[in-house]
Amino acid sequence: MIFAWANLAGGAEPGATSGWQALARLKTDEALREFRAEAEKPASDAAKRDAEFGRGVSLLAKQPMTTEQVEEAWTIFNGLADSGTDEVAQGARYFLGRIAQHHREQPNLAEAAKQFRRLLSEQESSIWAQTALSRLVLLELYPERSAASPGQCVATARKLLAQARLPVAQSELHLVIADAIFYYRLPVGEALPDLLAAEKLRQLDAPTRADVLVQIAEVSALTGDPAQARKFYETFLAEFPLDQRQYMVKQKLAGLK
């Protein structure tokens, strides 16, 4: 998975590595110093853009967070996103969406969705577009002040699956869609294709896989497919012998017709 994404992320300039290293440890003051110093050096345009991008990202983590800081980051990202098509421009577009979504005091979800959609339309396969996809799907599933019914929201979200390029992204989308179906109390059978698809993609970590196996078995039993329920209960029992649900799953298995 790491390699797959690293390939997608290919072409990134090395940039101000020490700044990014400091930022990875959330040493924001140090990162900002590094990025400012990098921007002042005579360097390639790509390196300067990378440093500017780093400065914008650092501002979103520097404590205490201020409105001015967020707006400064917005200005930086806006400039970068509109002045190129490189990875920095894509990352900047992603962060424009995130600022609108979460960083501003008053979220603007429509603006966030607009930025994410633009990124997807321009660079669908890029790592930033694929990252935006998992955020956009949530905005479709849980829209604000929308007249759309939960079923319509799920249907709209499901259309985004076509834009998921890698198994890991597809798996993630299936999981959040299934979760929304449960949350909205839609017929549980509607979640079954998503759960089965996520399981089949084999991208789940162990704890999530344990949950998904139980979910498939439970929903299969509820929707009249005891054979499938049995198969997944048994898979769960075999793969997770120390899970707390062993006793309950054995009871369920014994109760299957």
């Binding site: 994404w5 992320a9 290293q21 694929q130 992204a169």
Partner: peptide, 13 residues
């Protein structure tokens, strides 16, 4: 930051 510093993209997307 991890993506830019080391190329590790495991946390995205």
């Amino acid at each position: 930051a991890r993506l830019r510093a080391t190329g590790e993209a495991d946390r995205l997307p």
